Simulated scan of single mutants.
Amino acid sequence: MALAYKTSCEKCNISLNTQSEACICSYECTFCETCATEMACICPNCHGELVKRPKRNMD
């Protein structure tokens, strides 16, 4: 199963693409790095750890 790359931060709604710096939890909740840092890298939805999302090369 492929990772779902969401197109915006779930907190501030900033636009994200596959090369954007973003953080995700194990349920693929997605936040920009700024929001993730403000939330101490804890997902507000599941309370799991937010980690850096890998970048996807679309070549």
Score class of each variant (00 low, 15 high):
residue 4 A to Q: 03
residue 26 S to F: 06
residue 59 D to M: 07
residue 1 M to S: 15
residue 23 C to D: 09
residue 13 N to C: 02
residue 1 M to C: 04
residue 49 E to T: 12
residue 14 I to C: 15
residue 17 N to V: 01
residue 13 N to T: 14
residue 50 L to F: 01
residue 54 P to S: 05
residue 30 T to S: 09
residue 53 R to W: 03
residue 15 S to E: 15
residue 52 K to P: 08
residue 18 T to S: 10
residue 46 C to F: 00
residue 18 T to Y: 08
residue 57 N to L: 11
residue 20 S to P: 06
residue 39 M to D: 09
residue 14 I to R: 14
residue 20 S to K: 13
residue 48 G to A: 14
residue 28 E to K: 11
residue 27 Y to S: 13
residue 18 T to F: 02
residue 16 L to Y: 06
residue 35 C to T: 05
residue 20 S to F: 08
residue 55 K to T: 15
residue 7 T to G: 15
residue 12 C to Q: 01
residue 49 E to F: 01
residue 40 A to R: 14
residue 21 E to S: 10
residue 45 N to A: 10
residue 2 A to Q: 11
residue 9 C to Q: 05
residue 8 S to T: 05
residue 1 M to N: 13
residue 54 P to M: 05
residue 13 N to D: 14
residue 58 M to S: 07
residue 32 C to E: 04
residue 11 K to H: 05
residue 25 C to S: 14
residue 52 K to C: 04
residue 52 K to F: 00
residue 58 M to D: 08
residue 31 F to Y: 15
residue 3 L to I: 10
residue 29 C to F: 03
residue 49 E to P: 00
residue 15 S to V: 09
residue 30 T to G: 10
residue 47 H to Y: 02
residue 4 A to H: 01
residue 38 E to F: 03
residue 54 P to I: 06
residue 56 R to G: 00
residue 57 N to A: 10
residue 33 E to C: 09
